[in-house]
Write a protein that binds this DNA or RNA. Structure first.
Lengths: 254, 254
DNA sequence: ACCTGAACACCGTTCAAGT
DNA sequence: ACCTGAACACCGTTCAAGT
């Protein structure tokens, strides 16, 4: 399959006269198909998912794709690593889109919140990139359109509808941010040894300055289950609050 | 005032025979008082506030304090730059503490939310550091105690009280995150030229795939006023929702 | 024109040498 | 013991040279 009849000793420009090994004993001709932008962005996202944003360096990415560092720029046709990050951001925005958005604002907002949460949990590094106009790209734009569609049936004035969108987005991002914070860099290499944290915590409580924390017992780390519950609970509170903005129910709370 | 009688030509070990300038024409003897941990952390926070987290490098910080890079580690008694960031994080947590926390859960949570928001707007880089156990330090611990104190009067079961805390924290962080995102790196150097964004946006809308965005008119950038309103509105919705968790009013929404 | 090796100006941190 | 200069192994990116 792999082995083709060898035609001559030096007919390949990959072979030099002093090269003694037989062609088929060496790895495939390194036919580096030039990577596409998509394949590079996908590789970068995979890398970030697996090892965190810090692992995404131009050199490392090149290694991953069996290319030279500077080729990343050429192949993906980006002018800087920043632009590559922009592409990664928008890729994840694509994961935040809900397939069949319900008509009603309440299930629609709930669906968006849950879909967004799932995407962010799958790509936690996305949060770290906030502050870079994360909803600017094509998928991000579609996401904004989706949010507008979700609140169409919310019977409130335009500012209230906009506030509802922002509030829900905001809530999701905040939830994930704190969830990631609590599990800490624990996943990302365990910056602080668990034992050290516990001992320090005991030491602080021993001062007597934190009666309520002390009363709460030995700070159990929040479980994934807890976080699911907090998310569901908070979201329902939010939706309940927003529904009070409905015109029939009265003026927006203020 | 500055000039003191010159006592001799070489009596200072800062002066060498070939040094021709007069003592008082040169800057003060560079009496580098060894910096304290506090002064170093304060300088780092100032630097981050003024030029962003990226500007906080060991070398730059040393320059700022007229010290050698490696002295930062000695003076602040930190083992890595990561630990310095931990100190910076906790410093900001100190700014999130409310002086006189109201008794009632509702004004208490509102006060915490507003105080937290003010601190985060003053130190926007804090958000980027989430994921590092931001509430682990002494001030962070006090902040957690404060949150527990705030919900004491909330007549709901423990999980609901915890959810209320998480939800409010979460909301604030999310709000700031999106606010920073919208103003983008605009402040931080303007990654994307305003004109380019507008043109790209027009181009996307021209596809007809975004009827609601198109109908909303030329995407006005959100003003600080808008953000204040969204924050206030969202917070009230949230508090209204939480109040539905009060035992007399019925079981927590679900 | 497209691709890329070498080099540049950074970074955090190690380490051995200073005092 | 405390402090620090030089060096190391990185980083993103420039640039000139290759094809």
């Amino acid at each position: 399959m792999r082995g083709e009849p060898r035609r001559g000793r030096y007919d390949s420009d990959l072979m030099t006269p002093d090269e003694e090994s037989l062609v088929w004993t060496r790895p495939a001709p390194a036919r580096r198909l030039p990577q596409t932008r998509e394949s590079i962005v996908a590789a970068a996202v995979r890398l970030a998912d697996a090892e965190g944003l810090a692992a995404v360096t131009v050199r490392r990415l090149a290694e991953e794709l069996d290319a030279r560092p500077m080729s990343i720029y050429s192949y993906a046709r980006v002018e800087s690593k920043d632009e590559l990050l922009d592409l990664m951001i928008d890729e994840v925005c694509g994961d935040m889109l809900v397939e069949d958005l319900p008509e009603d604002w309440r299930p629609a907002l709930r669906a968006i919140a849950e879909r967004t949460r799932a995407a962010l949990l799958a790509h936690p590094w996305w949060i770290e990139l906030i502050g870079r106009n994360v909803l600017l790209g094509p998928h991000g734009t579609r996401y904004r359109e989706q949010s507008l569609a979700a609140v169409r049936t919310l019977d409130a004035d335009e500012p209230a509808r906009q506030a509802a969108i922002v509030t829900v987005q905001t809530f999701v991002v905040g939830q994930i941010a704190f969830a990631l914070d609590e599990q800490g860099a624990a996943a990302a290499g365990g910056r602080h040894p668990e034992a050290a944290i516990r001992q320090y915590h005991r030491q602080l409580l021993a001062t007597g300055d934190f009666p309520l924390l002390a009363g709460a017992g030995p700070a159990e780390p929040t479980t994934a289950d807890d976080r699911d519950r907090y998310f569901a609970q908070g979201l329902e509170w939010l939706l309940a609050g927003i529904s009070s903005a409905q015109s029939p129910g009265g003026r927006p709370v203020q």
